[in-house]
């Protein structure tokens, strides 16, 4: 499963988004500092979205998906491992890159900790939800745009709570409530969504 490739793709996209923001809103440090947590979250989310169609695409093309489906591994385990692999290759690098890119956006000092924590907690949910979207659109020609359309509304709660943790953290406010809700969403999706992903994957392999 490790031969997916495209390791740096999401990371480069994250960098591009963050670099382009000052060009579009202006170089004032105060403004950038205010929007930095939100921009970092948005950039991470878009970078994650960009790499979703690769989750199953290669395995679908070379036939491994059929063979895995007939192997002793339960489908739920396959999609969970796929989501984990996506997080390790996309989500985790984004979490690690976020503080560096935060420098570019003059993220306030207190913000770093909470941006990292919120991304670390939230990106697994993005990977799991994205795996569901990828399972829905596996094998479809021109599935990429449809995948984004399907996944974006599903990303809303994670984005709201994640960005809220980062923003409140940067402003030095209490973060407990959104942090708990974010953790709740991540745990809930990890526990339940693989069943839905496995079900749609079975339908798609029929």
């Amino acid at each position: 499963m490790r031969a997916g490739g495209g390791f740096g793709l999401g990371l480069s996209f994250f960098l591009i988004v963050v670099v382009l923001v000052p060009f579009s809103v202006g170089p004032q440090n105060a403004l950038l500092a205010e929007i930095a947590p939100g921009v970092l979250w948005l950039g991470a989310l878009l970078a994650c979205l960009l790499s979703l169609d690769r989750i199953f695409a290669l395995d679908w093309e070379d036939g491994s998906l059929d063979l895995l489906a007939t192997s002793p591994l339960p489908m739920e385990a396959i999609v969970s491992v796929k989501a984990l692999a996506h997080w390790l290759t996309t989500g985790l690098p984004l979490v690690l890159a976020a503080p560096v890119l935060g420098l570019l956006l003059s993220l306030p000092q207190e913000g770093y900790r909470w941006v990292i924590i919120s991304l670390f907690l939230g990106t697994p949910a993005l990977s799991v939800i994205g795996t569901f979207g990828a399972a829905l659109t596996v094998g479809l020609k021109r599935g990429g745009l449809l995948l984004s359309l399907l996944v974006l509304p599903l990303y809303v709660p994670t984005l709201i709570f994640g960005a809220e943790v980062a923003r409140r953290g940067a402003e030095g406010l209490a973060v407990t409530t959104p942090l708990l809700l974010l953790a709740g969403i991540t745990c809930g999706t990890i526990a339940l969504l693989p069943f839905a992903s496995a079900a749609v994957l079975r339908v798609n392999l029929r």
Partner: peptide
């Protein structure tokens, strides 16, 4: 997720 979004949006 729509239900979650509803609560998230209220919160936000």
């Amino acid at each position: 997720f729509a239900l979650l979004s509803r609560y998230a949006v209220n919160f936000w």
